[in-house]
Amino acid sequence: MTYPTALTTTNSNPRLRLLQGLKAGTKPVMTFMGLPSVRTAQIVALTGVDSIILDCEHGHISDDSMHNSVAAISALNVSPVIRIRAPLPDLIKRALDTGAHGIMVPQINNAAEAELVVRYSKFPPQGLRGQGSAFPAIAHGITIPEYMKSADETLITCLQIETKEGLDNVEEICAVPGVDLVFIGPNDLAQSILGYVPARGDEPEFIAALDKIVAAAKKHGKWVSRLSNSGALAKEHLEVYDTVAMGADMKAITMWFTQELDVLRK
């Protein structure tokens, strides 16, 4: 049996800014946030980004901060997405129960891992997700019954391809029903296939890997995204990708102080 997904839904909830931007082809821009602060969440949400990825894999974000930041971001009509630590059912459940508009799962290596993520991201009969939280409906701006009816086809399930094994199996991963967005982690991918970070960007093996992932995603009708380290690179990448994650809160702070201190001390 086939089910509607974020890729095929006709749901037009305007609160779901990332989803609506992807469906409209307007090339929404995301960014990463790794600092555990409601105020940081609010400040970043007011910059004009369409979505904020709360980095619970590498960032300093606790369970409590994750809940608070999702509430703050969604209240400002920006889409919160949570990058969890691993493809584990309890982490998927906890992230979605905050009201996140989607999840990002790192280092997906094969179709079985992709299927597990989808299974625990969807309510029965499609999957095995349990219901019990009132918070998701709030973050989606709808009632709990409305959320229960729409969640399976509006939540964005994003999987990261960032290992050689994931690259080798990318066709099978992208073919899994319920996978909506494939995200390239260029640094881990470079480390895995080249043995160093960051990639220069001109290595034939690295370019071929990016092309292979993009081609597999498009072949199977999935959205595809990647990390972009600057506005200039993001603009270039959006000629190919459906959305990008431009930088991160910690990098932005570091860059501003470094640049301005250089000006001051010259």
Rank of each mutant, 00 (worst) to 15 (best):
G221Y: 03
I253C: 12
H220G: 04
V176E: 00
E236H: 08
A139M: 08
G166Y: 01
I161V: 13
A86S: 14
V244R: 00
I73S: 10
G48V: 02
H67Y: 15
K149R: 15
A234F: 07
G185N: 06
S37V: 04
I53F: 10
Q42D: 11
G48K: 01
F123E: 02
G201Q: 04
A134G: 09
S121F: 00
I43H: 07
H220P: 05
N109H: 10
R83N: 08
R17F: 05
V214P: 03
I193Q: 10
L116E: 06
S62N: 10
V240L: 12
R94W: 07
G247E: 11
I52G: 10
N77R: 15
R129V: 02
H237M: 13
V176A: 00
A209E: 08
G195K: 01
S133M: 03
A199Y: 08
N109Y: 04
I207G: 06
R85N: 13
E205L: 15
R17W: 03
Q126G: 00
K122D: 01
I142W: 03
P87K: 11
K212C: 11
A111W: 01
V49I: 15
G34F: 04
F183C: 06
H60W: 12
E171N: 14
I82N: 00
L88D: 04
M148W: 13
G102R: 01
M104V: 09
R265I: 07
P124G: 02
K164M: 09
A134I: 15
F123D: 03
P186K: 04
